[in-house]
Structures are given as C-alpha cells and as structure tokens.
C-alpha cells in the first residue's frame, strides 16, 4: 500500500490512505508554524519552511475528502492569515472548501456564481478558472466544461495541465481526434514526458484498434515512451499489445501495398515490429521477475500494474518463472 506522506502524497490515494493522511491533522494543527511575536522578532523566531505550507495544503485536501470539515476550516484559516484572503491560490482553496461543503447542486451553483464574480473582477486568476471548470464537470455539464477549457487554453496555450484535462474530457466523450490533438499540444510543451507519449499511443489505439495507420502511430508513440524511460512498464505493455495486434494486419495487407502507400503514415516492417515485441516481452518479464524478488512496497510499480503485465505474458504462454 502507498505511503501516507503529506509532503508528497502518492499519485493514487485510496480511501484508507486518505484516512491515514487526514488523521495527521491533530499533530500538524497542534503547533503553530508562525510565531506570535511582533514583527521583527517574528522573522527571527519563525519556524516555517516551504514544506510547511505544502503539507498544510495537502492536509486541507485530505481533510475535505474525509469529511473532517472542522480541521479543514482551521487549516484554511491558518493559510488565510499567512497569505491573505486576496491571494489567487487562497481564493481557489476557499472555493474548494465551499464546494466540498455544498450539500446539493443548488449550493454548488452558488459556489459557481461566486467564481464568476471573482473572474469578473480578475479574469487572469487561472486557479479560479480551473476550479470553475471543475465545478462544471462535477455538475455533469461536460460540454460547458469543454467550452470553458478551450477558452482557457486559447488564453494560455502553454498550460500543459489544462491541455491534458481537455484531452481527457474529449476522450471521455469519445472525441478521439480532438483528444489526440490536445495531447500533442502537451507534447509540444513537454516533449520529454513519457506519460504523455504513452497516453497519445493509448488514444490512437482506442480510437481504432483495427486500422494499420492508427496502430502504427500507437506503436511509434509507445516506442518513444520507452525510449524516454527505460523501465516504463506501461510503455512496454502497450508496445507488446500493439505489436501483437499489428503483426497479423501487416501480413494481411502486404498484398495490397499500394493501399498502404496512400496513407500518410507508412506502416512499419513486420520484422521490426516482431523485434519490438521481443524486446517488450523480455523487458516485461524482467520487470515482473524483479518485482516478485523485491519486498512489497519497495518498487515503484503498483501491484495492479505488475498483475496486468504478468497476465499479458501468461496469455502469451511464454513466461519464465
């Protein structure tokens, strides 16, 4: 199970981890990070560090999700006295608190209207714009959320997080082309992000798992992902899966060469696809073996990932134990 660390919370927080995180609230709240002395002395005797506030923010999120509203209020007050109520991030956190406490959609609408009011005064407050979109999503108005996000990325086209969110919204409504476009924008901002490459590949694969050009693009992006990260389990898994799908299609269409040349994506050679599959199989086997050798919680892979990889290998009937 993931470590409950407030400074760097795990990327996936199941409820029991969330509970562990929010149970740290009394400990953190018991000692004040700022000094109560008057101004020049408070600078000398302050015990706050940058980590203090990261921990407070993460604790606020944990308290809100576990329904510990009293602790959340205290943390929010602490943050407000430290950074001031007018701080952009504080406005967003305050909004987050209101959202969590909203009992029904009507109260959520009220929070939404508050956001609108804030944005009317200061349209450049990106945190609040993102919260506003999150509320739209939470209300189930996905189409509105997409429209709002397109405006946001038009105004700040280097915001990779917003592009990634837009891509996921498009993908969840089945608009694969738009989703892929958005992720390519993410790649323009951060071309070294292996997870973005793997995600583009996944979207290509999901958009049509029987057409050669889509599978070719998926293969290319998975190959790039493992080129950027030589132990990326998801990348090798995808590489193996896609090449398995691609191989029979390539041998089928080898008769109709002309058709393949008309596409703007040249299909790969069957030999190289076979080689890629072998590499992926070898690497997956190595990762699975290493993980069963190390102790639980010592490796960076999650148990579910390892299980999925083992299953894929077993399906192939080529596992070495």
């Amino acid at each position: 199970m993931a470590h409950a660390n407030l400074l760097t919370p795990p990327s996936r927080i199941p409820p029991q981890t969330a509970l562990q995180l929010s149970q740290k609230a009394p400990l953190v709240l018991s000692s004040a990070p700022t000094s109560s002395l008057p101004w020049p002395l408070s600078l000398l005797f302050s015990r706050e560090t940058p980590e203090t506030w990261a921990i407070h923010e993460n604790l606020l999120l944990a308290a809100l999700r576990t329904g510990d509203d009293a602790a959340a209020r205290q943390i929010l007050d602490r943050l407000t006295t430290r950074f001031g109520a007018g701080n952009e991030r504080m406005i967003a956190l305050k909004g987050l608190y209101d959202e969590a406490l909203a009992k029904d959609d009507k109260e959520l609408e009220k929070v939404f209207n508050d956001y609108e009011k804030v944005l009317k005064e200061d349209p450049t407050n990106v945190s609040v714009r993102k919260r506003r979109i999150a509320v739209l999503k939470s209300l189930g108005r996905t189409a509105d959320a997409i429209t709002a996000l397109t405006v946001l990325v038009e105004n700040s086209p280097t915001d990779a997080e917003a592009w990634a969110e837009l891509s996921e919204l498009y993908a969840s409504s089945g608009a694969w082309g738009q989703a892929i476009f958005c992720l390519e924008e993410v790649l323009l901002v951060m071309p070294n992000a292996w997870s973005a490459h793997a995600q583009v590949a996944t979207l290509h694969y999901l958009s049509s798992s029987t057409s050669v050009p889509a599978l070719t693009l998926a293969l290319r992006h998975f190959a790039r992902a493992v080129e950027l990260n030589d132990s990326y389990l998801r990348g090798y898994y995808g590489l193996k899966l896609v090449s398995q799908k691609l191989l029979p299609l390539l041998s089928e269409s080898s008769g109709s060469k002309r058709n393949a040349e008309e596409d703007d994506v040249a299909p790969p050679k069957p030999q190289s696809v076979k080689k890629l599959e072998e590499i992926a199989t070898a690497k997956l086997g190595e990762i699975v073996r290493q993980c069963s050798a190390t102790k639980q919680g010592q490796s960076g892979y999650s148990q579910a990932e390892i299980e999925a990889a083992r299953e894929l290998l077993n399906r192939d009937g080529r596992t070495e134990r």
Binding site: R131, E168, V186
Partner: peptide, 24 residues
C-alpha cells in the same frame, strides 16, 4: 510529469490534475 495526471487512464480512479481536483 505526474502532475499531468496521464498515468491513471481515462476517467480512472487516480487523483487527476491538481488544479481540477474533483473534491465532491
């Protein structure tokens, strides 16, 4: 690159992106 929230699948049970965190 974890902040991009791309490793948990589409509509998965991950934390998603921080700015768009679905508190409800």
């Amino acid at each position: 690159f974890a902040f991009l929230g791309l490793d948990n699948g589409i509509g998965g049970d991950g934390e998603g992106r921080r700015g768009f965190w679905d508190v409800r």
